[in-house]
Simulated assay, not measured.
Amino acid sequence: MLARNQDIDFSREIDSAKIGPLNILRMERAEAIDLIRTSVLSRQRMDIAICNAHTILSALDDPAYAETLQSLTLFNDGIGAELASKVLHGKGFPDNLNGTDLIPAILRNIGVPLRIFLLGAGEEQVRAAGVHIAETYPHHTVVGVRNGYFDPSDVDQICEMVKSASPDLLLVGMGNPRQEHFIAQHGDRMGATVAIGVGALFDFMSGAVIRAPKPIQNIGLEWLFRLLQEPRRLSKRYLIGIPRFFFKVRGLKRSGKASASSK
C-alpha cells in the first residue's frame, strides 16, 4: 500500500507488511531502485522513510510520529523489522533495504544521472560525504550540502537552498524521528523529486563511523558492533529498546492488530 502523498503508477501492486500502524513495502533491492528511477524519470515526488526496530518502536510509542511515517513510503531495515514481519505474518522481507547499503546501490545502478543534495550530520561529515559521492559516482552531481545543526528560524532558508538546487535526490541524515518529520513537513517546499531519510549514512561515508565487517552484518549483529562503538549514545536504544520492541510485537500478535500482509 502506498502512502497518501505518493502518486507513482505501478504495473503491479506491491506487497507490504503491516507492523502496528505502519505498512512497510516488501521489495527486492532492484525493485526499490526501479521505484526510485520511475519517480525521477516521471518527476513525481516521493518521500521515503527506512524503518528499523527503533523507528517502528518509536511509531508504536508516539502516534504523531506514526502519522508522519504513514504519509511516507516505507522501506524495511534490519533484523528487527525482519523478525517482526515473520512473527506477525509468517514471512520476512525479500531484501534488507538499510540506507547504508541501499543508497550506494541506487547511485551505482539507477542508470540516470542524478542531482543530489545532502542535508544533515555535522559540517565536516556532510562535506566529506559529498566529496565521497562526487569521487565515487562521477556520473552524478552533488548540487549542495548543508549540515543538520540549525534552529527553526533557519528552516525557510534551508528549504529555499534545496529548492534552488533542484535536486532529483535529497538525502536527509538527521536521525529519527527528526528527519522524517522534516521531510513530511517541508518536502513540498524543498521540491526534491525523491527525498530519503538516511540516518547515519553521512557518518559512514565520511569515515567518521566504521561499519561492522561483512560477516557481522550478514548474521544481523551490526547493531551490536555499533553499540560497542558508541555505548553511551546507543545503550538505551539497543539494551532497553530491543526487548521493548519484541514485547510490543508480541502484543500486536496477541491482539491481532497486525492483519495479514496488505496490498
Rank of each mutant, 00 (worst) to 15 (best):
Q6C: 15
D9Y: 13
I14Q: 05
I14A: 09
A17T: 07
I19P: 12
I24Y: 08
V40H: 09
S42V: 09
S42L: 08
R43K: 13
Q44C: 12
R45I: 01
N52M: 02
T55C: 13
D61M: 05
D62S: 06
A64H: 13
E67Q: 13
T73R: 10
L74F: 02
F75L: 14
D77H: 02
D77T: 04
D77V: 03
L83V: 15
L83F: 15
A84V: 07
A84S: 08
G90F: 04
G99L: 06
T100W: 03
I103A: 00
I116V: 14
A129T: 04
I133N: 04
I133V: 13
I133R: 03
H139P: 04
H140I: 05
V143T: 10
G148R: 04
F150Q: 04
D151H: 15
D151W: 13
D151P: 08
E160Q: 14
M161A: 14
L171M: 07
R178Y: 00
I183H: 09
A192R: 03
A192H: 04
A192I: 06
T193V: 12
G197A: 10
F202N: 02
M205T: 05
A212R: 05
K214Y: 07
K214E: 14
I216C: 03
Q217S: 10
S235Q: 06
K236N: 15
R237L: 02
G241D: 09
I242K: 05
P243G: 11
K248A: 15
V249W: 00
G251F: 08
S255W: 12
S259K: 12
